[in-house]
Design a protein around this nucleic acid. Structure first.
Lengths: 199, 199
DNA sequence: ACGTGAGTAGACAGGTCTGTCTAAACTCGC
DNA sequence: GCGAGTTTAGACAGACCTGTCTACTCACGT
């Protein structure tokens, strides 16, 4: 088994391909960007791509898996230093605001990929995985926060999160997560009856 | 000028092309569906398409304009029989719920088209028009409802509306607008201080 | 020095796409 | 009937796409 040069001096062909795919697929769309653009941007030969991934679809799958890991990792990191479920929930929107304000932001990669892919393909599966993770996170934190109806609160906050994603993309408005956070605050206040101690 | 057969017995070639484009573009995507599929589904010759619209891009533009007119018309109809701005705002979500539960629903056509098109094209312009109309509607009703901060409330409700659109599509969950309506109710209660009369 | 294996450049096949063009068929007022 | 304009079917051009294949280069362990 040859596992050398994994994190060697210069990035391997696989890493350069993944980096190029991430950049181009996200910026212009999975369907729009062709293989030739990818390999040109990565600086590798076409045969290297097909030796490494086997097909474009497999490259798309790897691109989405990479996006999922980075997104869930970013959110996890954003809330891990925050104390209390209520503050954690609001910190999710702060992290989203920071992301939406970063240059080159074009909305959720899964929404874009899903709009281009046909139903039932590998894109749909990756999308379902990613969205299930976020949904579970909102539900978990809503339970921890002591909501009267955690499922309802979690869904509502998730809706705000999705809406901010969509608006930031479609309206090119990086302040959408800020608006969502304000609405989330109001929903939290309404959904959590203070049981003894005040905020 | 020849303007006969506008609404004659059998639909004109233009109408059949538009109907075919609406069905196929919405179901499978603007980029994915080719000219040949459109003309086959419409039952017209390729030359008729290019004589009528001139290019595929122009057909896409007509498709989106048609979608916009039907969407804004549907929303206008849904709220025109409802008394009071608060009830009108909630009726928007009822209309959305009905739409999301209809067979073949695949989310917002503009979101899908925007994900496929390149930035700056005619799709972006049509999308901006449509979204500006909805944004103005939410702002107008929030003002009429007497919100303390109409701009904030309008944006927040718009965010819920967008989130429900996205979730209904991505999660294949037609109940998302119902969830959004519940959240909208809570936001309305929090944003409108009762000034004299009760609900 | 040499063989091995990975990477490279690029031609190529087979398919699909948009858009043009030709020639035949059809419609309809007269 | 007839002639003018419209519609039709389909071939075609030119571009682009994915994926395969050949031949060459280069690093490297032994």
């Amino acid at each position: 088994m040859i596992v050398a040069t994994e994190t060697a001096a210069r990035p391997s062909a696989r890493e350069r391909l993944l980096a190029a795919a991430d950049e181009l697929f996200y910026a212009e769309g999975v369907q729009t960007v062709g293989i030739d653009r990818i390999i040109e941007h990565a600086g590798v030969a076409k045969a290297s791509l097909y030796n490494t991934f086997g097909s474009k679809e497999e490259l798309v799958r790897a691109y989405l898996a990479n996006r999922r890991d980075r997104s869930t990792g970013r959110i996890s990191r954003a809330i891990e230093g925050v104390q209390g479920p209520r503050a954690k929930l609001l910190a999710i929107f702060d992290a989203q605001a920071e992301l939406a304000a970063s240059p080159g932001y074009r909305g959720c990669a899964f929404v874009a990929a899903s709009a281009e892919a046909r139903a039932g393909g590998c894109v749909e599966q990756a999308t379902d995985d990613y969205r299930a993770w976020i949904r579970a996170l909102f539900l978990d934190l809503a339970e921890q926060a002591g909501a009267d109806d955690p499922a309802a609160l979690g869904s509502q906050l998730n809706l705000l999160y999705d809406g901010a994603t969509l608006s930031a993309r479609m309206d090119r408005d990086p302040t959408a997560p800020i608006t969502a956070k304000a609405a989330a605050t109001a929903l939290l206040d309404a959904a959590i009856k203070p049981s003894g101690r005040r905020s």
